[in-house]
Design a protein around this nucleic acid. Structure first.
Length: 93
DNA sequence: CGTATGACGTGCA
DNA sequence: GTGCACGCCATAC
């Protein structure tokens, strides 16, 4: 099943600039719609500078997490020009 | 090989 | 809208 990991990384790597995907979406594209949990695990342990894992957010509208700090994730997303929709931990923006 | 873990998701109170 | 519990899957140890 190592293919799943590679596929997930591939999918995340293939995310266009300024776009975002949810964990469930990535899992589906990777071929395991119900492995969204594994997706988070893989990204968490296999972070690569060439893989924009910061473009992967939760499906409930939250940011999710980041192995390097959510703050960095938010900053990167803002730099990419991603919709602030995912960038509201609270507050009514 | 078996157990524990986790950057999730959905349902229900 | 918030909080708790269950489910589900691959990876790491």
């Amino acid at each position: 099943m190592s293919n799943f990991k590679d596929k997930v990384l591939e999918v995340v790597k293939n995310i266009p600039r300024g776009k975002t995907l949810t964990y469930s979406r990535v899992a589906k594209l990777a071929g395991r719609p119900k492995a969204y949990r594994a997706v988070g695990n893989i990204l968490n342990k296999n972070y690569d500078p060439k893989i924009p894992c910061h473009k992967v957010v939760k499906s409930n509208g939250k940011i999710g997490g980041y192995n390097r700090g959510v703050n960095k994730k938010i900053k990167l997303l803002l730099k990419e020009g991603v919709s602030l929709k995912y960038l509201r931990p609270q507050r009514k923006i």
